[in-house]
Measured scan of single mutants.
Amino acid sequence: TTVKVNGTKYKFDTPEEAQKFAKKAADKYNLKVVVDGDDLRVE
């Protein structure tokens, strides 16, 4: 599972880890998590 934040992709072994990271990033930058198929985007 990958998470894309500000054009940078981060790869995670499990969707749970990816979800946690995406949520933290979204909170930090005051953005929202967008599900894109198997991957997540923070925008």
Rank of each mutant, 00 (worst) to 15 (best):
E43V: 12
R41I: 15
E43M: 09
T2Y: 12
A18Q: 01
K24M: 14
V35N: 08
T14D: 08
A22T: 01
P15G: 04
V42I: 10
F12V: 00
A26R: 04
K20H: 11
T14P: 00
K20W: 10
D27S: 10
K4F: 15
A22M: 02
F21S: 01
N6M: 14
D38G: 10
D38L: 11
Y29F: 12
T8G: 05
K9F: 14
D27E: 14
G37L: 04
N6T: 03
F12I: 01
E16R: 06
K32Y: 10
V5D: 00
Q19T: 08
K11Q: 12
K4S: 15
K4V: 15
G7N: 07
K4T: 15
Q19M: 15
K23I: 09
D38Q: 11
V42D: 03
Y29N: 07
T2S: 07
E17V: 03
D36S: 07
E17R: 04
V3N: 01
K24F: 14
T1C: 09
A25K: 08
R41W: 09
L40A: 03
R41L: 15
V34K: 07
K28A: 11
T8H: 13
K23E: 12
D27Q: 12
K24P: 01
Q19L: 15
Y10S: 01
D36I: 08
T1L: 10
V34H: 08
P15I: 10
D39T: 14
L40N: 03
V33I: 13
K32L: 12
E16I: 07
D36A: 06
K24H: 13
V5P: 00
V35Q: 11
D13A: 13
T8A: 10
K24I: 13
F12H: 00
A18I: 00
L31W: 12
D38S: 10
K4R: 13
L31C: 05
D13R: 12
E17H: 05
A26F: 02
K28H: 12
V33H: 01
G37P: 03
Y29D: 06
T1I: 12
A22V: 03
G37D: 06
D36L: 06
K24A: 15
K23L: 10
Y10N: 01
K9Y: 14
G37R: 04
V34D: 05
E16P: 02
L40C: 05
E16T: 07
D36K: 05
Q19F: 15
D39K: 05
Q19G: 06
D38M: 11
K23C: 09
T14C: 04
T8M: 13
E17G: 05
V33W: 05
N30L: 06
A25T: 14
K20P: 00
F12W: 01
A18M: 01
D39R: 04
T14G: 03
K4C: 14
K20F: 09
V3S: 00
K32A: 11
G7P: 00
D27F: 08
L40D: 03
D39M: 15
R41P: 03
D27I: 10
K4H: 15
A22I: 04
T8C: 13
